[in-house]
Design a binder for these strands. Structure first.
Lengths: 160, 160
DNA sequence: GAGAACGGGTAACATAATAACGTCTCTCAC
DNA sequence: GTGAGAGACGTTATTATGTTACCCGTTCTC
């Protein structure tokens, strides 16, 4: 059996979700941030999904499943909060959001997105960001933020 | 005077545009591709702009300036053609398009986007893509396409 | 308890992209 | 030549995504 990264294995990862939420609770408490019910729920939904989740997907769940009267601003405000505080990432090539695997310190990961199962694997490779910063420096450009989104096949979806 | 990359210098670069169009003519002729008037005009507009251009910006020019009756599909079809044949790139973090600086061979560049002057500088650094491919390989991921979009300050906009 | 700050609901709007269908015009085999 | 097929593009409508402006109630602060 080929080894499969966590992110793409179709399993019940409710414990992952739970620990991510607990971690968020701690981090927000420590910084005096208000992880309100709505924000926590949005974070939960993003974590529950095995693939990047669109804002309108979240919206649909809040309306249909939670019975909450939600409109776009509701979702985007919650997402803005989560983004600002490093609890989720935005994948701009998909217009979608994923839970951050390494919250608690400012960073911008790199993402491997499987075109088959749509899982997003977060990396945090210094070698990549260093290569970028160094190449930018060569043309006098100062890097402030990086977007690295890679499409391909995850180990579980190769040769299927 | 600080040295300034071509892309961000506010100069008349009509000769750049002209040579890019000529090059496109040659490339398309060589491959039996039809660089129609519309497609050529869209390519020209993308090149004329000093910054990444949105599809609806192009649409506005076609309608207002050229007097052509254009709707979104018109523009998107032309852009699709140009994208497929490596004549322009799409910047997904901006939902916008830039002319390709190295047409004629398949590649996906890296982009440095100045948050001040909005210029986009295209890189094609093997060191960056190699770092990505190698890190992906470590988790069993096979890379098919890369999106690298970096925000920061170009040399001309620093310390202003 | 006045008032600022914040969270969040509501409506409308703005921007980005696609679907589906029709017409015209090439080109090429015949 | 000519007509069948393919490609380019116009047209209309619709979907997807993201933002603005405004309001209201709660909470925090003094």
């Amino acid at each position: 059996m080929p080894k499969t990264p966590i992110a793409s294995r179709p399993h019940d990862h409710s414990h992952c979700v739970h620990s991510a939420l607990s971690e968020a609770d701690v981090l927000c408490a420590r910084q005096g941030l208000r992880l309100t019910a709505l924000r926590r729920r949005v974070l939960e939904l993003v974590w529950q999904s095995h693939k990047p989740l669109g804002a309108y997907d979240i919206l649909a769940v809040l309306s249909e499943q939670d019975g909450r009267r939600a409109a776009p601003p509701t979702v985007y405000r919650a997402l803005d909060f989560l983004l600002e505080n490093g609890l989720v990432h935005r994948i701009s090539s998909l217009n979608a959001f994923v839970g951050c695997n390494h919250p608690g310190h400012a960073h911008q990961g790199q993402f491997l997105i499987c075109r088959e199962c749509h899982a997003a694997i977060e990396l945090e490779q210094k070698s990549i960001s260093d290569a970028i910063i160094s190449s930018a420096k060569d043309v006098g450009f100062v890097v402030e933020g990086q977007t690295v989104e890679v499409v391909g096949l995850c180990s579980g979806c190769q040769g299927v």
